[in-house]
Design a protein around this nucleic acid. Structure first.
Length: 431
RNA sequence: GCUGGGGUAGUGUAGCUGGUAAGCAUAGGAGAUUGUGGUUCUCCUGGCCCGGGUUCGAAUCCCGGCCCCGGCCCCA
């Protein structure tokens, strides 16, 4: 018996109902912000990802050689494929271009909480604007996603790689030391600032003020920190503008100049959304500004976007005890006790289904008590069993399985009208 | 790549200081009784993660692998 591959999951109806619900909610928020959904292949040429992120990432890729000898890989993320799509066929679409996407991604990782080898990402790219307002709207969109889902306690951290970069430049570290410092800065969340500050004290004496990196509450306060460094001042001025727009959009960010955003290609404002319910994997969303035109060979194009961990978001919702929907049962469950009755039942069922209602019918030719049991198990609201006796009398019992009450209905009315009036039930209430 | 814990019917479990048919609960199917669900009775389906080893004998002990739940590394 074959097993499920490591780090993957099966989703049963109840869990799938919750995931679909959440996905629908998220899609709707993107729509409200003027984004359009796009989709790219689940596998791409290996080169697409090594070009953007370096050869080092291959160890975490599900790469393979296809039957034509091409080096391919399941996609580990969606930014590169979507930008490939943009530069390939849509580079001259009107700006700003606002695209969002949702789909499975694959990484050859060690499975942990909120971390799987096949995982689902929502994300978006906003191409062409590059303004502070564009950043603000993008961050507000991210905040809107979690608000829509009802997730509480999501912290919005915003920083700027330019500012952090200039501050570190001043320390005069070599590449190796710089890399180590970045790692420690990235871990400030877990280990506190001591590790990073101690590292600076040791390797770049005379920069004790580095610890102040985590002090400013807003970009204006941070101005003092960077002194007369023009590039850093420019970055903070950009952040200041973002702050103003975010205030108008109803989002309160926290300044975090330590956001390193893992790798290199981010160029401007960067941000991360965290949720404390998740211990080791608290980051729910991350993104920032970048420009991949050099990788794909096109016009310089200011772009920004983010990726949102859909699986982690669902874990966080569960941990907060959010009421997520379960699989819904049919409105009515039908059974027939004779060939003649079956004809009536099937005709009724067919019509109700055309009318858009979810109705189920016994497929196993069972006895009345078994049909009733199956209806209950299926989560049906109404039960209708038709036998010879009903055909002769011309009326049939429609039983409300919630109240246990039965109403008598004429066989000829056994259709949409009957069910909409039965027990005062209106199918529109199902939504 | 490193590391802690764990794998017994679909689900939840007992057995696990080696030894009679691997027990219990629940679930699923059929039948009996009821022309209308969870009551009762009967029957059936279905399990020791995989592979080696030790032993007269392994669910039980040993080794390896696979998978699950965590932590580290990493996290585009």
């Amino acid at each position: 018996m074959a097993q499920r591959p490591r780090g993957t999951r099966d989703f049963a109806p109840d869990e799938m109902a919750a995931r679909s619900w959440a996905a629908d909610r998220v899609r709707d928020v993107f729509r409200r912000f003027g984004y359009h959904e796009v989709q790219t292949p689940t596998f791409e040429e290996l080169e697409l990802f090594t070009a953007k992120s370096g050869e080092g990432i291959i160890s975490e890729l599900y790469d393979f050689e296809d039957k034509g000898g091409r080096k391919m890989t399941l996609r580990p993320e969606l930014t590169a494929p979507v930008m490939r799509m943009y530069f390939q066929d849509h580079a001259f679409d009107p700006k700003p271009l606002k695209w969002f996407y949702h789909g499975p991604c694959f990484r050859y990782d060690r499975p942990q909480e909120g971390r799987y080898r096949e995982f689902w990402q929502f994300g978006c790219e906003q191409i062409g604007a590059g303004t502070p307002l564009a950043y603000a709207e993008l961050i507000a969109l991210g905040a809107g996603l979690f608000e829509e889902l009802g997730l509480d306690g999501v912290e919005v951290r915003v920083g700027h790689v330019g500012v952090l970069g200039r501050l570190i430049d001043r320390l005069g570290l070599d590449d190796a030391a710089r890399g180590e410092l970045m790692r420690r800065i990235d871990k400030v969340d877990k280990e506190g600032t001591e590790q990073a500050v101690a590292f600076v004290d040791e390797h770049a004496p005379g920069h004790e003020d580095f610890a102040a990196l985590w002090n400013p509450q807003n970009p204006v306060d941070a101005m003092e920190l960077v002194g007369d460094d023009e590039a850093a001042q420019a970055g903070l001025a950009e952040l200041t503008a973002v702050w103003e727009h975010l205030a108008a959009l109803g989002v309160e960010p926290r300044l975090d100049l330590g956001i390193a955003r893992g790798l290199d290609y981010y160029t401007g404002v960067v941000f991360e959304f965290h949720c404390k319910e998740l211990e080791a994997q608290s980051q729910l969303l991350g993104g920032g500004g970048y420009d991949l035109s050099r990788v794909f060979g096109g016009q310089p194009t200011p772009t920004m976007g983010f990726g949102m961990g859909f699986d982690r978001t669902l874990v966080a919702l569960e941990k907060q005890g959010a009421a997520l929907p379960e699989a819904e049962g049919p409105l009515a469950y039908f059974g027939a006790l004779s060939d003649g009755a079956r004809k009536v039942v099937l005709e009724t069922v067919a019509q109700l289904r055309r009318d858009g209602l979810a109705v189920d019918v016994d497929l196993m030719g069972r006895k009345p008590n078994k049909i009733a049991g199956a209806a209950q198990a299926a989560g049906a609201r109404y039960l209708v069993i038709v036998g010879e006796r009903d055909l002769e009398s011309g009326v049939v019992q429609v039983k409300d399985l919630r109240s246990g009450e039965a109403t008598t209905v004429a066989l000829t009315d056994l259709g949409h009208e009957v069910l909409t009036h039965s027990g005062g039930f209106d199918p529109r209430d199902m939504n």
